[in-house]
């Protein structure tokens, strides 16, 4: 249990420092134009990466293709058809759970 508390304390501090570092160190200042152009593209890069890692990651290192991929594809289809985020999420869960139950 002491280990758990040690880990907690270290994680709380490091997470807080990492989150604050950008705004505290660089806050309120305009970035050079080229840096701004890059920053504007961070969201597409990171979101796409998060989709990939969350859909396909296995335990620790490793890639697993499973029913999640079907659910995520379904959510994508809903968004492309201009559905709402809530419907997309519901479809994702239903497709994943449904295909898992059937296979």
């Amino acid at each position: 249990m002491a280990e758990a508390w040690t880990l907690f304390a270290l994680m709380a501090v490091t997470t807080a420092v990492i989150r604050a570092s950008g705004p505290v160190v660089l806050g309120g200042r305009e970035l050079p134009r080229r840096a701004t152009a890059v920053v504007a593209l961070l969201a597409p890069a990171l979101l796409a990466a998060l989709v990939m890692t969350e859909t396909f990651r296995g335990e620790g290192t490793g890639l697993i293709v499973d029913e999640r991929a079907l659910g995520v594809a379904g959510a994508g289809a809903v968004m492309l058809a201009r559905g709402s985020i809530v419907v997309a999420l519901a479809v994702a869960m239903a497709l994943t759970a449904g295909s898992r139950a059937l296979l």
Partner: peptide
């Protein structure tokens, strides 16, 4: 069993496409 593991990637994809 309820497809919870698809929730976050679906959400990030929804933000991307949205």
């Amino acid at each position: 069993d309820i497809g919870l593991d698809a929730l976050f990637p679906a959400f990030f994809l929804a933000l991307l496409f949205g």
